[in-house]
Design a protein around this nucleic acid. Sequence first.
DNA 1: CCAAAAGTCTACTAATTCAATAGATTATTA
DNA 2: TAATAATCTATTGAATTAGTAGACTTTTGG
Lengths: 143, 143
Amino acid sequence: MLSKKCKYAIHALVYLAERYQQGPVHIQDIADSQRIPKKFLEAILLEMRNAKILHSKKGKGGGYYLYKKPEDVNMVEIIRLMDGAISMLPCVSLNYYERCEECTNEVTCGIRDAFTGVRDETLKLLSKSTLAHIVKRQRELAK
Amino acid sequence: MLSKKCKYAIHALVYLAERYQQGPVHIQDIADSQRIPKKFLEAILLEMRNAKILHSKKGKGGGYYLYKKPEDVNMVEIIRLMDGAISMLPCVSLNYYERCEECTNEVTCGIRDAFTGVRDETLKLLSKSTLAHIVKRQRELAK
DNA sequence: CCAAAAGTCTACTAATTCAATAGATTATTA
DNA sequence: TAATAATCTATTGAATTAGTAGACTTTTGG
């Protein structure tokens, strides 16, 4: 399950993607519309800013806006940033690999196969899922 | 990520599957070989017993053994039992569905699509991954 | 038949992670 | 230059996960 933080991040990003190239959006505006605690959202946006996904503008008329193009931001990137590994087992993770403590011998472990497959499929699907796709889909559904 | 509990459960099951139809195995034996805290393992095995995956025999010469056939126990069943939902979002879960709090309108939510796809693929792969497969794979790798 | 073995059950406690809040600070611009 | 809005540091509270303790029950081999 994705954490609340990650879900908040996705919703905030979609909101910003819907307003791409329309100037900065206030944190307060995002917080209100997406029902996210403002202070928590601040931290989340800041993290995405540091990851160069968002930019911000301080002072009057400031706020946050997408730095990357909506078609260049996919779910894999967001989940990794917010929650860490995509895979279900650390010993199968590409970006957050860790040796399985409970594994006596990783080489002969028959469990990893299935989870490697799941990881690959998940990455394939989620990397295709971009903010641009989501916004498009949203607009179709709203008709 | 799967919880430790779930990983312990999988390892214990694989261990028992390797010894299928060879009589009951002591909790202590499983705990020692798989490096699982015994008391914690007790609770895990009990849960799987209540789910009719395992059977147990009390008293001297007792222990736990697989009740279901190794080819009939797959990863989906174990993960659901130990950790709950397989899907990454509650609003996309088949067995643990919950309305997304942060979703203003679930019907027009463009986020769900991708995660529905991930759920389906994950279920497909993990339901094919049975104890029998894992043991077989393990024996091949050990050669 | 009874003592030892081994699972069962209830109830905690500790540790970690997740979620949220508070408040002071800095930068910007109208 | 005052108001606005993001930035940063630090903490707190809540929930979940992991692990422990100990008494109880059942079974069976000698």
